[in-house]
Design a binder for these strands. Structure first.
Lengths: 281, 281
DNA sequence: GCAAAAGTGTTCGGAGTACACCCATGT
DNA sequence: ACATGGGTGTACTCCGAACACTTTTGC
């Protein structure tokens, strides 16, 4: 852009031997209950996590059933869905709170997580269902609740869900109906942030298993950006990204020519990224 | 990027006649005190505004003197600086609170303002000076304070400062010393957000008067991105941006060939931008 | 053998980059 | 007259865009 010397948007590449690279931090797959000591919860600050999961066909978001029953006769007053979120402990960092929500749901740590926007307008809890829900939960629906929005990226298949007995499920983002509170707004903003981030940094692989094929990666870009990409051009571009490392390993059990697997090298990426930043600043 | 059809990062241009364009909303220069009715302030939610001002030589940030005196003998306990910020009224939207801070300081409305990150970790008010300051102000330094960070862009020359008798001043961003609370972190993050935004959307002109020269605009990019740009290449690029409209007007009173003035057409920009978004989504 | 996705090369246009001189004004 | 910043064109390279056929596997 605008350039003298090297373009700022382009990535200078230095070669790093493949043996010295490290993939993204391996995830803890074993599940255990959150071992947090019970401390005071702040009822008016919450983190909301927009958890995106990709299943090779759709971009999904993780939603939680919210059903309010009549105390007396158990009649269902309403039933809808919310994003995943929770309140924070008084001495907890907000990033830790977001990681905790994610861990409680999925048993995974080291997931890509990014703060994208905060929602704190007074009218975000004005709908009758939301007010009833808060009252039932012992909260004051007239008090402002600050929600700090994070989005997380993971491969749907890496996860089996559980969350405190509540029903959670994956919903394709374009099939999401009306959600609780202002969660539709939060989801929309998360999608915008995700798109912008995807155009700026290579985070697409975060939605895939550690080893993935180029077609899978291409599909990530196509679905999030809502466009179709040319296979040959895409692969030429990937060839320039030295941090996407081809493995001597192929897909198995597919009814067609098996594709080569690739992995992302965080190490190579960080090294090459430093060069640009040193140049800009 | 990755392309089939048209590149997503490039701006499709449609021609719009200059007569139909509107510049950015004209700013109210007349000063008046904020006419807000006094309502309850929420002492634990604040907006912090990183107000950037450009003066053709430096990118500056607006800082406020913070001096704590001993109640008894008036001795100065410490003196440092903070970003501009304030608490929010219970029924106020956060964007409105940020606009209000900006208006109280500068008397300007319609300024470019963007939420960029929220700071809410419990250790952000751990420094002794900060704790003393909060105590003196009747607040509990052990309670978490959520600060929603905004940054604002304006031309230093468009503003004469006043803020409730407190001393405010412009400081070049690379001469900022240690600030109160975690305001150095907030400033750093604001700079990163500003850089990213500048690479993504044409907001450079927000740091300039309504009518500006191309050299001034170039300097905005050079200083914020920390790089040098070639004059001819920059001008070729600008020629492609149809929303930067050359005027039949020149600089006056300069001791060299007077430069042509340009303005930004928000109208043209929005129209051309729709084309791309319609294409992506 | 057939269905299904993997994999591969070339041409064209446009943008990024590097580079040097004359012009209009105020003092 | 001179100092100061304004304003302009060309050549090269690289990337983005468009486009079609062969290969390998499972069934």
């Amino acid at each position: 852009m605008f350039g003298n010397n090297k373009s700022i948007l382009y990535f200078a590449i230095t070669l790093v031997s493949v043996e010295n690279t490290i993939t993204k931090s391996s995830r803890i797959r074993e599940k255990r209950k959150s071992s947090k000591i019970v401390k005071e919860l702040n009822k008016y600050i919450s983190v909301d996590c927009v958890i995106f999961g990709f299943d090779y066909d759709n971009l999904n978001v993780l939603l939680v059933d919210r059903t309010l029953n009549n105390d007396v006769n158990g009649e269902v007053l309403f039933s809808d869905m919310t994003l995943t979120g929770n309140h924070i402990y008084e001495d907890e960092k907000i990033e830790d709170a977001a990681s905790r929500v994610l861990f409680d749901l999925t048993g995974l740590e080291g997931i890509y997580l990014e703060q994208f926007k905060t929602f704190a307008n007074p009218d975000r809890i004005s709908k009758p269902n939301d007010r009833a829900w808060l009252l039932n939960d012992g909260r004051d629906p007239n008090k402002r609740i600050v929600s700090i929005g994070f989005f997380a990226l993971l491969a749907t298949q890496d996860v089996t869900l559980e969350w405190k007995g509540r029903n959670v499920k994956w919903v394709p983002v374009n099939e999401v109906k009306e959600l609780a509170f202002d969660h539709n707004d939060i989801l929309d903003e998360a999608l915008i942030a995700l798109r912008n981030k995807l155009l700026q940094e290579p985070i697409g692989f975060e939605l895939l298993p550690d080893k993935f094929t180029l077609s899978q990666l291409q599909k990530v870009y196509e679905i999030i950006l809502g466009t179709e990409l040319d296979k040959r051009n895409f692969r030429k571009k990937v060839a320039r990204m030295k941090y996407l490392i081809p493995l001597d390993e192929k897909q198995k059990g597919v009814a067609h020519k098996p594709a080569r697997l690739y992995m992302f090298s965080c190490d190579v990426y960080e090294n090459t990224r430093k060069d640009i930043f040193g140049f800009i600043v």
